[in-house]
Computed example of a mutant assay.
Amino acid sequence: MAQSPAKYKVVAFYTGKNDPAHISFVHEVDKWLTELAKDSCFEYESTNDWNRLNKDNLSGVDVVVFLDTRPDSLPNRLAFQNYMENGGAWLGFHFCAFALDGSTYPQNWDWYHETFLGSGQYKGNTWRPTTAIMNVENNSHPVTSDLPNNFVASPNEWYSWENDLRENPYIDILVSIDSSSFPLGTGPKKHEIWHDGYYPVVWTNRHFEMLYINMGHNDIDYESDTNKELSFTFNNAVQNKLIIDALFWLISCDSSSMR
């Protein structure tokens, strides 16, 4: 009997401690990826032990996923940088790109935020989490080639960045917020409602096998202190298609191989 082909290995790292909305997303995406892996060409595992982000453990990993945060220790950071500079692949969601001096997650990793992501520090966000209309900027890329020109994203807290990614020749912006979304956000603070501007949502860096997706913040009932989940990220077929095609592009596996 012929043996089944070896599956690609996808390992996700998370912290799962900062903000109920991020914790909600981590639980949701972890369950979603676990189910996705059952009928596809990859096996999936997740861990909140960032010390597993080391050279030995990464040697057999095809794709690393950051579900919420980033590694903090220097050995883990160097191991990840070495992995990416030597052909590794990475998929990151929402909060993993956050960095702000003076916060719990300061910009103290230039390679990651400036060279790898290209975005620099976090600059601002919309509030509350709301849907937004996405503009697919590159229909020829494998990640977006099967998407409509515009689609409505799940509710999310949308980020803006210190650096203008359009000025970085190595960054390919695949999806951005469409201007028809404005005004975006409900406040109550005025600066958390965007009325204009350019905001990339999904991008890659040509120097690496990587893709960042800004989605990853569910709406939560903070006001009544119940932390009840008011929205979910993966109740969205088009957005799910984007994430599936991103993952399969990174592992060089045809998504049509899903049973």
Results as ranks from 00 to 15, higher is better:
144 T>L: 05
224 S>A: 11
215 M>D: 14
98 F>Y: 03
74 L>R: 09
165 L>I: 09
42 F>D: 09
45 E>F: 01
236 N>C: 10
11 V>P: 05
21 A>D: 00
143 V>K: 01
208 F>E: 06
255 S>P: 02
45 E>L: 08
105 Y>V: 02
240 N>W: 07
111 W>L: 15
227 N>H: 04
243 I>T: 13
106 P>R: 06
107 Q>D: 15
43 E>D: 14
164 D>W: 02
67 L>M: 07
256 S>L: 04
51 N>Q: 11
109 W>Y: 12
26 V>I: 09
237 A>N: 09
13 F>S: 05
109 W>N: 00
171 I>H: 00
25 F>Q: 01
238 V>W: 00
42 F>R: 02
81 Q>M: 13
148 P>R: 07
78 L>T: 14
39 D>T: 15
184 L>A: 05
120 G>I: 11
18 N>S: 09
256 S>N: 09
109 W>M: 04
116 F>R: 04
109 W>D: 07
250 L>W: 03
74 L>Q: 11
51 N>K: 10
101 D>M: 03
14 Y>H: 15
12 A>P: 06
26 V>T: 03
224 S>K: 14
135 N>I: 03
235 N>D: 15
7 K>I: 03
74 L>E: 11
12 A>C: 11
177 I>S: 00
8 Y>A: 14
231 S>E: 09
255 S>G: 01
200 P>Q: 13
173 I>Q: 06
190 K>E: 08
128 R>P: 15
201 V>D: 00
126 T>L: 05
128 R>C: 08
13 F>Q: 00
167 E>R: 13
258 M>G: 08
65 V>D: 02
187 G>T: 11
92 G>W: 00
161 W>F: 13
258 M>P: 04
7 K>Q: 06
156 N>K: 06
124 G>I: 09
248 F>I: 13
191 H>R: 08
235 N>W: 07
63 V>F: 04
126 T>S: 14
52 R>K: 12
170 Y>C: 08
80 F>D: 08
125 N>F: 05
24 S>L: 08
115 T>W: 13
33 L>I: 13
103 S>C: 01
124 G>H: 12
116 F>Q: 07
162 E>V: 05
17 K>W: 15
130 T>I: 10
41 C>M: 05
80 F>H: 14
20 P>G: 13
142 P>F: 02
56 D>Q: 09
132 A>R: 04
96 C>Y: 00
243 I>R: 08
70 R>L: 02
29 V>D: 07
190 K>G: 04
67 L>V: 12
29 V>E: 11
8 Y>S: 13
215 M>Q: 14
118 G>D: 15
83 Y>M: 10
47 T>Q: 11
28 E>K: 03
75 P>A: 12
85 E>H: 10
35 E>Y: 05
112 Y>A: 05
230 L>M: 15
215 M>W: 09
182 F>D: 09
220 I>C: 11
200 P>N: 08
189 K>A: 10
116 F>E: 06
54 N>D: 10
74 L>Y: 11
157 E>G: 03
238 V>S: 00
28 E>L: 02
78 L>F: 08
45 E>Q: 12
204 T>L: 06
72 D>C: 00
126 T>E: 04
10 V>A: 06
240 N>T: 08
61 V>R: 00
256 S>R: 07
181 S>L: 02
42 F>G: 07
159 Y>K: 02
200 P>S: 13
62 D>Q: 08
39 D>V: 15
